[in-house]
Design a protein around this nucleic acid. Structure first.
Lengths: 188, 188
DNA sequence: TCCATTTAGTTTCGACTCAATACTAATTTA
DNA sequence: TAAATTAGTATTGAGTCGAAACTAAATGGA
């Protein structure tokens, strides 16, 4: 019974997030889905900054996403760039304008005030509980995890020599392994 | 810093919820917003089952909501009925078909599996933390609470004689006070 | 009492999302 | 080297959304 109650609260919380996201975007002439795409592109790594990855992340078709990205480019929030090795692939990079807006959005919807009364230990517990829900939902629905490299089973810690991605064999910096990757898989 | 991390996870969780809600609705020919309206109408009390209340709950304009409700009625998920006392007001009641679908949606997106490893004490803590976030977000953005009567400052517990709403002076049953009310206010 | 205001709801319009489909171009596979 | 696959774009039609204009009923002063 308790799980159902948690579910209802979570569902309502998600409605509210969506509501405020819409209101925020409206002030800057962007739709919710465009804000979401922009936010993703400021958080993802260099393997994951393509239209296809955005589509998988948002759970939309690539055709739909293609249009949203066109708008974001036209409004100067991101730049498209052809990949050097595979000419089919388009790389998406937020402009300064784009990443500034993304930062502003994150601040505007900060949980800081709502969590002010809670001590940091509880916040850590909350975060970990939310993570496990997230992971459970993704598994149940066959979605990709889109986690950061430092929690990925392919990530190798070479101690003094930094990190290496076991899939691409490329070295990764401390900053790199904090970014979202479309190839992410949890250990085991 | 920890609050920001919680925020990112929560945001991702909300995207995912939306994604799965869309996929679910698609199978039954309903849009996400229509599912949300229907779910609300199966959970709200008799003061809160109007188009205006739905609009406030979803954070949309009444014109927008009016259209979604028209579709839900045409598809047989709810019935409209003029109020007896105030003839401007339309009362919305889910049909059997409507409430069945709503139940199915709740089951389909259950957190049960994701929370299976967590003991019930922790689930209670999680729920309460989510509630406080919800409340904080609503306050920060000047939204109505839409809580259930049993947490409302107008609700009066008359012990053996049941409950009474301090606003309408109407008696409320044990079932009534579990339902969502648009006039809900937390005790100071 | 009566007229202005407010409130609940609908309709219409134009910009936008979204899935489905068909398409182009580059890469991979057989 | 031809067929299949992959990345991305363009088009179309159903539907969302906010804004504005509208109807009808209730309220509230003067």
């Amino acid at each position: 019974m308790s799980a159902q109650e948690a579910n209802e609260v979570l569902e309502r919380l998600c409605n509210l997030q969506r509501m405020e996201a819409r209101a925020f975007g409206l002030r800057y002439g962007l739709q919710p889905v465009q804000m979401e795409a922009l936010t993703y592109l400021t958080q993802c790594n260099r393997y994951s900054n393509t239209p296809q990855a955005v589509a998988e992340y948002l759970g939309l078709t690539k055709g739909t996403v293609s249009q949203s990205l066109k708008v974001l480019e036209q409004k100067g929030f991101l730049r498209k760039q052809a990949d050097n090795e595979d000419k089919r692939i388009v790389r998406l990079a937020p402009t300064t304008k784009g990443s500034n807006l993304s930062k502003k959005a994150l601040l505007a919807r900060s949980l800081e005030p709502a969590l002010a009364m809670t001590d940091s230990l509880k916040i850590a517990e909350l975060t970990s509980a939310l993570r496990s829900i997230l992971r459970g939902m993704q598994q149940a629905n066959g979605r990709k995890a889109f986690g950061a490299c430092h929690t990925c089973r392919f990530n190798e810690d070479h101690e003094k020599n930094g990190y290496v991605c076991g899939l691409t064999r490329e070295p990764l910096s401390v900053q790199d392994i904090q970014l979202i990757c479309r190839e992410h898989q949890y250990p085991h």
